[in-house]
Simulated scan of single mutants.
Amino acid sequence: MKWSELDENWCPVARTLTLVGDRWTLLILRDCFLGSSKFEEFAASTGATRHIISSRLKRLVDAGILERKLYVERPKRYEYLLTEKGREFAPALVTFRDWGKKHLPVRRSVIAAKG
């Protein structure tokens, strides 16, 4: 079954996954909750390509999870802000975070290798 076929599925989990069920979308939402709002911030934080970030932001705006606001006229630059609908996703992200902290702790050797 293709992702596009799940958006009309009877299961609300399946329908939700069609919108936020990939790593880049979840990381963009994480960054929004942490205060990021600009394209370049999402690029730096997630490591995703510009094309991926652009497509995920468009999908989130189209779904009413983020709103796009112009903050610089020349050249045109937009920021992406959580809507009320988007802010309602907070408990899901908190659950992801808490589960990851408990079951997938960062090993010190991984941190040392990056530092």
Results as ranks from 00 to 15, higher is better:
Met1Arg: 14
Met1Ile: 08
Met1Ser: 12
Met1Asp: 10
Lys2Asp: 08
Trp3Phe: 09
Trp3Glu: 14
Glu5Thr: 02
Glu5Asp: 13
Glu5Val: 01
Asp7Arg: 11
Trp10Asn: 10
Cys11Arg: 01
Val13Leu: 14
Ala14Phe: 11
Thr16His: 05
Thr18Pro: 05
Leu19Ser: 01
Leu19Tyr: 03
Gly21Thr: 01
Gly21Arg: 00
Asp22Pro: 04
Trp24Val: 13
Leu26Asn: 06
Leu26Val: 11
Leu26Asp: 07
Leu27Trp: 09
Leu29Gln: 05
Leu29Val: 06
Arg30Pro: 01
Asp31Phe: 04
Asp31Met: 12
Phe33Gln: 00
Phe33Trp: 00
Ser36Thr: 05
Phe39Gly: 01
Glu40Ser: 12
Glu40Lys: 14
Phe42Gln: 03
Phe42Arg: 03
Ser45Gly: 13
Thr49Tyr: 06
His51Asn: 09
Ile53His: 00
Ser54Leu: 08
Leu57Thr: 00
Lys58Leu: 03
Arg59Lys: 15
Leu60Asn: 06
Asp62Phe: 07
Gly64Arg: 03
Glu67Val: 06
Leu70Met: 10
Glu73Ser: 14
Arg74Ser: 13
Pro75Lys: 01
Lys76Ser: 14
Lys76Asp: 08
Tyr78Phe: 15
Tyr78Thr: 03
Leu81Gly: 02
Thr83Gln: 10
Glu84Gly: 14
Ala90Asp: 06
Ala90Ser: 08
Pro91Gly: 09
Ala92Glu: 09
Thr95Gly: 02
Thr95Leu: 12
Phe96Met: 15
Trp99Leu: 15
Gly100Asn: 13
Lys102Gln: 09
His103Tyr: 15
His103Phe: 07
Leu104Gly: 04
Pro105Val: 01
Arg108Met: 11
Ser109Arg: 10
Val110Leu: 14
Ala113Lys: 10
Lys114Asp: 12
